[in-house]
């Protein structure tokens, strides 16, 4: 187990390193620099700024400087948010993104669970069809359309929830639903088919033959055994929910991290982009590692390779 962990960790670090390097290089070959603006700066002022951020050094030296910083946990200064470091910005925004991700995930699981169980219990009847239909609707709606529709109905027409101003409880409802709808649909699908599969297995038949009541069979035996595929999905999904909620962050003005994938690139804020990419990849790597570990703990048949 420890060898496996060490190997995976090393592997994860390698992925991180390649991702950082790739981002570093791609950004620098992109035309346009961080301090180009409508007011073109006099060359001597540009020189001062470049000197301040060591942008006048050769790339390789900049790269070495950056890696050395990262190794010590310093992600560098932000070029755009002049008084803040990238670590500051991530510290400010990552908790918000995480909270939103958790809320969406909880919403998804809580809603998907009864839907899937109902669908499996009434397989091939109207409840099943209805649930599958709903889930298909859920994965067919782009975030921004769902967000727009929710704002239209609940903010503008009914006035129940705020469209933005993150911080008050009623501002979290619409983004949570918007972000959670798609994972919810996936969970419903997955849990339903997993349940159906389990229900067909021998031990369920045994349980039924023993005369156990159907709800008991369903919950006690089937549900418990059908959660593995859902668990597998949970890890990567959480990573994408945390970092990939950019559209939701834009629409509902949520002070999260996802928006920097766009704004920091258009601003050419090199350290900020590399920083958020690093964090995203790290979350993804960790989430996958965690899932794999749970996996091998839960089911010893799955060999750790």
């Amino acid at each position: 187990m420890i060898r496996f962990l060490a190997k995976r960790l090393l592997h994860g670090l390698a992925v991180l390193w390649v991702v950082v390097t790739l981002t570093f290089v791609l950004l620098r070959i992109l035309p346009g620099g961080p301090f180009d603006s409508e007011r073109r700066l006099p060359p001597e002022i540009m020189a001062n700024i470049q000197a301040k951020y060591h942008l006048d050094e050769p790339w390789l030296k900049q790269y070495a400087r950056y890696l050395a910083g990262v190794a010590q946990g310093d992600l560098g200064p932000s070029y755009k948010y002049i008084d803040r470091t990238v670590s500051d910005i991530i510290k400010d925004t990552l908790p918000t993104s995480t909270l939103l991700g958790v809320l969406a995930l909880v919403f998804a699981v809580v809603l998907a669970f009864p839907l899937a169980v109902a669908a499996a219990a009434y397989h091939n009847r109207w409840a099943d069809r209805g649930c599958v239909f709903l889930a298909t609707l859920g994965i067919s709606l782009p975030h921004f359309l769902l967000g727009a529709a929710l704002i239209w109905v609940f903010s503008l027409k009914l006035g129940w929830f705020q469209a933005a101003r993150w911080g008050s409880p009623d501002s979290a409802v619409l983004p949570t639903i918007t972000l959670g709808a798609m994972p919810c649909a996936y969970f419903t699908y997955l849990l339903r088919s997993s349940l159906l599969e389990t229900l067909g297995e021998d031990f369920i038949r045994t349980a039924r033959a023993k005369g156990l009541k159907e709800p008991f069979v369903l919950f006690k035996h089937a549900v418990r055994n059908s959660l593995i595929p859902v668990l597998t999905l949970l890890g990567p999904l959480f990573a994408t929910l945390v970092a990939g909620s950019f559209v939701v962050e834009y629409v509902f003005a949520i002070p999260g991290m996802g928006r920097f994938f766009i704004s920091a690139v258009t601003d050419r804020d090199y350290p900020l982009i590399t920083g958020v990419t690093l964090v995203y990849t790290a979350i993804l790597v960790c989430a996958n590692l965690l899932v794999d570990m749970c996996y091998s703990l839960v089911d010893p048949r799955i060999r750790v390779r």
């Binding site: 992925v15 991702v19 790739l22 996802g258 994938f261 982009i273």
Partner: peptide
Amino acid sequence: IFYGLPDLLIFV
């Protein structure tokens, strides 16, 4: 590595 890169970054 492709999985590790954020989709959005690749797009942008």
